[in-house]
């Protein structure tokens, strides 16, 4: 077994912020590609959220390094077997795509009516590779944890998928919060599917851990796991979005719950492998 890498709070925040950025971007790109006019706010807001958060990510990662001045050494090589190496390059690419997409959002709103459709077509095209990078950013951190010899993480193939579902739900939550009073078409349906998927993956993840799942279910992490991840992050938002019809107030409460649950999930998974 490897020693404890002591990845710090910076990494917890990176997992969370990177997940929200990636989720907001891939939801934006998918809404841009498949949604009609009513889904456009998801695209515009999602791209607008992705860029600033994508810029925070490298700062958090740099601060966690033993030698922050050597952060650029991540770009000496491209090693396909190392999720951290590929992830560094992907984060660079994701930042660039977030920037271009946001510029195209602003360009469309300022463009003459006859030129706007062309700009939107370009933005949709840019969104396809950007979306793939978004999925990569959302999941590679989970793959990275699997590629170790630490308890809970080592060899586990369910953390990446879990982080993708969580990126979708927290990305949608960030979009809903940004929208404020404005109603966003489609988000409710998306929440229900994403949270349901997350619940399924959580079960698969715990099952794959076998006896080691006790750290979450009954061990010292149990209160936070049941309270923040299961109840606040999955059960409540799922039931609210499926059954309640409380309007915008409910949307905002759901969004806040999802963000709390998503943060708790990243925190617990990072801590459980370093306990």
């Amino acid at each position: 077994m490897g020693k404890n890498p002591a990845w710090s709070w910076y990494i917890v925040w990176y997992f969370f912020v990177g997940g929200v950025a990636a989720g907001a971007y891939f939801l934006a790109a998918l809404a841009d590609l498949f949604g009609r006019e009513r889904a456009q706010p998801v695209a515009r807001i999602g791209y607008a959220i992705a860029l600033p958060l994508a810029l925070v990510c490298p700062i958090l990662l740099t601060l966690d390094l033993g030698m922050p001045v050597r952060a650029f050494y991540m770009f000496r090589l491209f090693k396909t077997g190392s999720p951290m190496s590929v992830g560094s390059w992907a984060l660079l690419g994701f930042g660039l795509f977030s920037l271009v997409s946001l510029i195209l959002v602003l360009a469309e709103t300022r463009a003459a009516p006859d030129r706007a459709p062309g700009i939107r077509r370009l933005r949709r095209a840019v969104g396809v590779p950007g979306m793939l990078l978004g999925f990569f950013i959302a999941s590679y951190t989970g793959v990275l944890l699997g590629t170790t010899n630490r308890p809970v993480w080592g060899g586990n193939a369910w953390i990446g998928p879990l982080f993708i579902a969580s990126a979708a739900s927290t990305g949608a939550a960030a979009i809903a919060l940004w929208a404020g009073r404005a109603r966003i078409a489609g988000l409710r349906r998306l929440d229900v599917i994403a949270i349901g998927f997350e619940a399924l993956l959580l079960v698969l993840f715990l099952q794959s851990l076998g006896a080691a799942a006790a750290v979450f279910l009954t061990g010292s992490f149990a209160p936070l796991f049941w309270g923040a991840v299961v109840v606040a992050g999955v059960a409540l938002p799922f039931l609210l979005q499926l059954f309640a019809r409380g309007g915008r107030g409910q949307e905002l409460v759901t969004a806040a719950l999802l963000l709390v649950g998503g943060f708790a999930l990243r925190y617990l998974i990072l801590l459980s492998g370093q306990a």
Binding site: G2, P5, L65, G66, S82, M84, T147, N149
Partner: peptide, 13 residues
């Protein structure tokens, strides 16, 4: 060349 990312620490069996 080491920048202290500590991935190797977690990876070593």
């Amino acid at each position: 060349l080491c920048n202290g990312c500590r991935y190797c620490v977690a990876a070593c069996p």
